[in-house]
Design a protein around this nucleic acid. Structure first.
Length: 923
RNA sequence: GCCCGGAUGGUGGAAUGGUAGACACGAGGGACUUAAAAUCCCUUGGCUAUUACGGCUGUGUGGGUUCAAGUCCCACUCCGGGUACCA
C-alpha cells in the first residue's frame, strides 16, 4: 500500500469531527494552556500559502502542550467587520453581511483541509450580535468611567460627579485634556447639558473636538495607526487633518501602564521597542515665559531645560490657543494669511515639502532665567497636539530650530564647548556647557546631563516651571462614518448631548439601509436607516465603531463564547486567565496590540478580568513573500527564449503564472492554454526545456505568484504542507515561498510510510529495539522537545528526516520505536500520525498520546571521538572510552600515531582538552 | 535623521566560543527500466592536487580579545523593517 494521503487526511478529519476530538472545557484537574492565533479578516481572495504559516506554528504548539497533559484552549474566529466588504457593497449593492458570510465559509473550508486542532464550537464573529453586544457593553462602561490618576485606574464617573458636587475641580485626580476649573457651587448651578458637556472632558469613551485624520476618498476618519506617511493604510488615499467632533477612547490615560507593563510580557524586544516608541515617553520640564508688557505667560515643554541660555525665539503651533492672545494688530493680516495657507495643506504635503515656513506674531516674551527679550513666531513645525503646542527655540542645539533661525535670520548662541554651529546645529547630548551662567543660574563647566538636572531643580524651586513627563501616545479616534461596523449604544437628547442606552437594550442591532454610501447631505450611511431611534424616540448615533473595537477583547470571548450574561464568566476567566501564546504578524504592533492591552486593562480595573496583560508570550511569524516567474518574449514576436539564452536577444520579461511552472521549467502546453495570445507561442529551448527567470516579490494576484494551499494539499497533502511551511525556515523570519523544495518533505513522509508498510503488510515486529535504534529515537526526542519550546520547527523537521533515514538504514522493525516516533510527529503531521497510530493497534486518538521523555542513558557512547587540533587545525580523530580523564586524553593525543607528523619533535606549549569534543595542542 | 533586525554555498537554511555549511532543494554521475515516472546509491563551498581518502583558503569589510571567533568587543559597508518636524 502506498502512502495515499488524500484518503488518510479526509478519513481522520472526519474522525476528529465525529469524535469532537478538539472540543475543550474548563477542567480544574488539569493545568490550562491558551494558544491563540490573530483571527483573520475573511477577504474575498481566500487564503494563500502565507496565511497558514502562523496557524501551523501555533497548532504544533497546541498539540504538543496537549500531549504534555495540558488542557489546551485553541480557538479560531473571524474579524468580520471591515472596509473591503463595505466597498464591495457600495459598488455592487450586495449586503456586506452576505459577502462576509460567503468569505467565512470559504476560509473555513480552506482551514479545515490543513487539519488544525481548533475547537470550532467556540468560533466568534465580530459582526454577530451576540458577540458585538459585548463590544457595545464595554464601550458603555468606558463612557460611564473616568481615569483616576491617583490610584491609576478607571472608576465610575458617578464618583467624579460626587467629587464635583462637593469640591468642584479642587483636588480632582481625573485624567483630562481640559484645563477648565470650577468650584462646587459653580458645578451645582450648571444645567444638566452643561454638566454633560464638562464630563466629556473626563470620560474614558468621550466625544471630543479633536484634530482627526480625515480621508476624503474613504469618507471617514482614521486612527493614527491606520495612517502611514500621510496615506491611508487601506487603499493608500491621502489623509488630511481636520477638526471634528468624534468619539475617542482615552488611551493616553493608560500610557504609563502600557509602557511599564511591557516589562512583564514575553514579547520580542523589537515589538516592545516599537510600542515604547509609539507610547513615546519623554521626560522634561514645563516652563512659563512671561510676555513683554503684558500680564500673560506662555507655557512651553522642553526636554533640554539646560539650553535655556540659548533661547533666541519662541514658536507656537498654528492651531495653538496662544495664537490669538499674542498676535498684534499690525501682524494680524500676515498671521491670518499664514494660518490659511497651513490649513489647506494636507499632512502629506506638509511632510513632503518640509520647507521652512512661519510668521512673526509681533509679540515678545522674556526668558525667565536669562532675562532676554525674544520674538514669538508661528510655524507648522510645532505640533499642537504634543506638549503644550509651544516651544522655546534653541537654534544652536536643535536642527529644526536651526533651520528656522537661518531662514528668518535669528541669532544662534552656541552653548557647548567646541561645538561648531556655523553649518549645522549640535544636537548631541554630551559636552561641557558654556555661555550659560548669570547671577541666577550657573551652568558653565557642567556636563549637559548635570546641567539638565541643575536647571530642573532651579525652575522647580523658583516656580518658573515644573518637571513633567509627556507621552506621544494619543487618544484613539473611535468613530467611523461607515455602515459595516458596530453601532454605538448612544442616543442624543434634546440638548444634543450623547446619552447611553441602558445595558438591557444591548445589543443594539445594525439596521438595514437601502444603500451603503453616505446620504446626500453627507451623513454617514446609518443616516439612511428608517426609524434609527432609541426606545424613547430620540435619534441614535450615526457613526459606527472602528475595526479594532471588535478585535480588542475577542480573546476573552473565546473563553466563554455562548454566555449571554457576561462577556466572560468570572470563574471561567479565572481558569483560562490570559493567552499564554499569541501568534500573529508584527503589523499590529501599534494598533491591535496597543488597543487590546488598553481594553484589557480597563476591564482589569473593574475586576472583570484577572490579568493585567492579555498576551503573555507573543511570537511574530514572518511574511511569506511570493516567488514570481518570468518568460522572455523576443521583441515584436510571439517567440519566447529560455532564461539562459536570453542574452542574445532583445527581450521583454513577462510574469507567468507560477502554477504552470515546475522547478522553473515552464509547462509549455498549459502556457499556450493560459491566455489566448500565447496559443501559438513559439519557444527557444535549452536542453529541451523552457527555463523561466524568477524574482522575489510580494505575493499578489497581479504578479501571478499566488500559491493556494488547497492546490498544495491536493497534490502533496496537508501533512506535507504543514511540514514544508515549518521546514522553510524560522517561523519569525520572512521568506519567499518556493514550491520547488516541497518534494523533500513529501519524500520523507513516503519513507516513513515505507518503514511501516511493505505492500499492504504492516511489517513491524515486537522485537526488542536495538541500542542503535534507541539512540536514534532518543536523540530525536531530545532535539524535538527542545526545539518546540523555542519554535525552532525547521530543525525539528530536519531531525525527523535524519531519524527516519537512520531507522531505514538499520532496517529497524520495532513497534516500540515507531510508537514513540509517531507520537512525536503528531503535532507536525497529525493525519499520517493518526493513521499510523491506529495501525500500531491503538484505538484512542494520537492527540492524547503522552509525549515521550528522552533518556540520557541511550545517548551515552561507549567510545568518544575526539578531534585533535594541532597548529590551529583538526589533524586527526581518535576514539577513547567514554569517561576517560582529561589528563589521560591529553596523553593519548600526544602519543597517538597521527600526532608525530605534526609535532615534529617539539614540546607543546599548551594542551586544552574540551571534554567529549576535542584536544587542542598549541606549539 | 532616529530605533530595531540582518549579512554563512547555485537556493532555503544549520551550528551552548570548540572539526562551519546539519537537513532539504537544485546540479552532476550511477543502478533499476524498452522508456518514462517512482525508488535507491555516489559527488557537490572555492582553489589546488591525485606520490598522498593530501594541501591551501573560506561565514559582508577592517581591526581586536582568545589556545580557539560565524558566534564576543570596536569601527565601517550594504540590505530589510519600524518611525518621524514629538521640542
Amino acid at each position: 500500500m502506498e502512502y495515499r494521503f488524500q484518503e488518510i487526511e479526509q478519513r481522520w478529519q472526519q474522525y476528529w469531527r465525529d469524535h469532537n476530538t478538539y472540543r475543550v472545557d474548563v477542567d480544574a484537574s488539569r493545568p490550562k494552556f491558551y494558544v491563540l492565533d490573530m483571527f483573520p479578516y475573511p477577504s474575498g481572495a481566500g487564503l494563500h500559502v502565507g496565511h497558514p504559516l502562523g496557524y501551523i506554528a501555533s497548532d504544533i504548539y497546541a498539540r504538543y502542550k496537549r500531549q504534555r497533559g495540558f488542557n489546551v484552549l485553541h480557538p479560531m474566529g473571524y474579524d468580520a467587520y471591515g472596509l473591503p466588504a463595505e466597498q464591495y457593497a457600495i459598488q455592487t449593492g450586495q449586503h456586506p453581511e452576505v459577502t462576509t458570510i460567503k468569505n467565512i465559509a470559504r476560509y473555513r473550508e480552506q482551514l479545515d483541509k490543513i487539519g488544525f486542532c481548533y475547537d470550532w464550537s467556540r468560533e466568534v464573529r465580530t459582526c454577530d450580535p451576540s458577540y458585538y453586544k459585548w463590544t457595545q457593553w464595554a464601550f458603555l462602561k468606558m463612557f460611564k468611567s473616568y481615569y483616576d490618576t491617583k490610584c491609576e485606574k478607571a472608576r465610575p464617573i458617578d464618583e467624579l460627579v460626587a467629587h464635583f458636587e462637593k469640591h468642584g475641580t479642587e483636588g480632582c485626580n481625573a485624567h483630562t485634556n481640559s484645563d477648565v476649573t470650577f468650584t462646587a457651587d459653580e458645578w451645582n448651578a450648571m444645567s444638566k447639558a452643561e454638566r454633560d458637556e464638562l464630563l466629556m472632558n473626563y470620560r474614558i469613551a468621550y466625544r471630543g473636538n479633536t484634530m482627526v485624520n480625515w480621508c476624503p476618498k474613504l469618507g471617514t476618519v482614521l486612527a493614527n495607526d491606520e495612517v502611514s506617511e500621510g496615506l491611508s493604510i487601506r487603499g493608500g488615499f491621502p489623509v488630511e487633518q481636520k477638526m471634528m467632533s468624534q468619539w475617542c477612547l482615552r488611551v493616553s490615560a493608560y500610557a504609563s501602564r502600557l509602557l511599564n507593563d511591557l516589562d512583564t510580557v514575553d514579547w520580542s524586544e523589537s515589538i516592545k521597542e516599537t510600542q515604547r516608541n509609539w507610547i513615546g515617553r519623554s521626560e522634561g520640564a514645563e516652563m512659563l515665559f512671561p510676555l513683554v508688557g503684558r500680564n500673560e505667560q506662555l507655557l512651553i515643554f522642553t526636554t533640554r531645560a539646560d539650553t535655556i541660555f540659548g533661547v533666541t525665539f519662541m514658536v507656537l503651533a498654528p492651531e495653538s490657543e496662544y495664537v490669538d492672545m499674542v498676535v498684534t494688530p499690525e501682524q494680524r493680516a500676515a498671521v491670518d494669511a499664514y494660518l490659511d495657507e497651513v490649513k489647506h495643506k494636507t499632512e502629506r504635503e506638509r511632510m513632503i515639502e518640509k520647507k521652512v515656513s512661519g510668521v512673526f506674531t509681533g509679540s515678545y516674551a522674556v526668558n525667565p532665567i536669562a532675562g532676554t527679550e525674544i520674538p514669538i513666531y508661528i510655524s507648522d513645525y510645532v505640533l499642537a497636539g504634543y506638549g503644550t503646542g509651544a516651544i522655546m527655540a534653541v537654534p544652536a542645539h536643535d536642527s529644526r530650530d536651526y533651520a528656522f533661525a537661518r531662514h528668518f535670520n535669528l541669532p544662534i548662541i552656541p552653548l557647548v564647548e567646541g561645538a561648531d554651529v556655523s553649518e549645522e546645529s549640535f544636537d548631541a547630548k554630551d559636552g561641557i556647557m558654556m555661555n550659560s551662567s548669570n547671577d541666577r543660574l550657573q551652568l558653565n563647566g557642567l556636563t549637559i546631563k548635570e546641567a539638565i538636572e541643575r536647571t530642573k531643580q532651579y525652575i522647580e524651586s523658583t516656580g518658573i516651571g515644573r518637571v513633567k513627563v509627556n507621552y506621544r501616545l494619543r487618544d484613539a479616534i473611535f468613530s467611523r462614518q461607515r455602515y459595516w461596523g458596530e453601532p454605538f449604544p448612544i442616543y442624543y437628547d434634546e440638548a444634543g448631548q450623547p446619552q447611553p442606552l441602558d445595558e438591557s437594550e444591548l445589543p443594539l442591532l445594525l439596521p438595514e439601509v437601502d444603500a451603503f454610501k453616505p446620504t446626500d447631505n453627507g451623513e454617514p450611511p446609518l443616516g439612511r436607516a428608517k426609524n434609527w431611534v432609541a426606545s424613547n424616540g430620540r435619534p441614535l448615533e450615526l457613526c459606527t465603531m472602528p475595526g479594532f473595537a471588535g478585535s480588542s477583547a475577542y480573546y476573552l470571548r473565546y473563553m466563554d463564547p455562548h454566555n449571554d450574561q457576561a462577556l466572560v464568566d468570572k470563574a471561567v476567566d479565572e481558569y483560562w486567565r490570559q493567552v499564554d501564546l499569541y501568534v500573529g504578524g508584527t503589523e499590529h504592533a501599534t494598533g491591535h496590540l496597543i488597543y487590546s492591552r488598553f481594553w484589557n486593562k480597563f476591564l482589569f480595573d473593574y475586576d472583570y478580568v484577572c490579568e493585567a496583560e492579555p498576551f503573555k508570550k507573543l511570537v511574530n511569524q514572518g511574511m511569506i513573500q511570493g516567488r514570481s516567474n518570468f518568460v522572455y518574449r523576443i521583441k515584436d514576436t510571439n517567440k519566447f527564449v529560455s532564461f539562459h539564452l536570453k542574452g542574445d536577444y532583445e527581450v521583454t520579461p513577462i510574469h507567468v503564472d507560477v502554477n504552470i511552472v515546475s522547478n522553473d521549467a515552464l509547462d509549455i502546453e498549459r502556457f499556450r492554454q493560459w491566455r489566448p495570445e500565447f496559443a501559438d507561442a513559439e519557444f527557444i529551448l535549452e536542453n529541451g526545456k523552457y527555463i523561466c527567470g524568477w524574482a522575489i516579490e510580494k505575493m499578489s494576484k497581479s504578479m501571478f505568484n499566488v500559491v493556494n494551499p488547497d492546490d498544495i494539499v491536493e497534490r502533496y497533502g496537508a501533512d506535507t504542507l504543514r511540514l514544508y511551511e515549518m521546514f522553510l525556515g524560522p517561523v519569525e523570519a520572512s521568506k519567499p515561498w518556493d514550491t520547488n523544495g516541497i518534494d523533500g518533505v513529501h519524500r520523507f513522509l513516503k519513507k516513513l510510510w515505507a518503514l511501516f508498510y511493505k505492500g499492504d503488510d504492516l511489517q513491524l515486529t515486537d522485537e526488542e529495539p536495538s541500542a542503535e535504534a534507541l539512540k536514534s529515537l532518543h536523540k530525536l526526542i531530545k532535539k524535538v522537545t527542545g526545539d518546540i519550546e523555542t519554535f525552532s520547527y525547521n530543525t525539528s523537521v530536519a531531525a525527523f528526516m535524519i531519524c527516519v533515514n537512520e531507522l531505514q538504514a538499520m532496517k529497524c522493525r520495532s513497534r516500540a520505536i515507531y510508537n514513540d516516533l509517531v507520537v512525536l510527529l503528531a503535532p507536525f503531521a497529525p493525519h499520517i500520525s493518526e493513521e499510523l497510530w491506529h495501525a500500531l493497534g491503538h484505538d484512542t486518538t494520537v492527540c492524547d498520546a503522552k509525549w515521550p521523555e528522552y533518556n540520557e542513558k541511550y545517548l551515552v557512547e561507549a567510545n568518544v571521538k575526539y578531534a585533535v587540533m594541532i597548529k590551529g587545525r583538526p589533524r586527526f580523530t581518535m576514539e577513547v572510552p567514554a569517561g576517560t580523564e582529561a589528563a589521560e586524553v591529553e596523553r593519548l593525543a600526544l602519543t597517538h600515531d597521527g600526532a608525530a607528523k605534526w609535532l615534529e619533535g617539539q614540546t607543546p606549549k599548551k594542551v586544552i582538552v574540551v571534554p567529549n569534543k576535542l584536544v587542542n595542542i598549541v606549539l
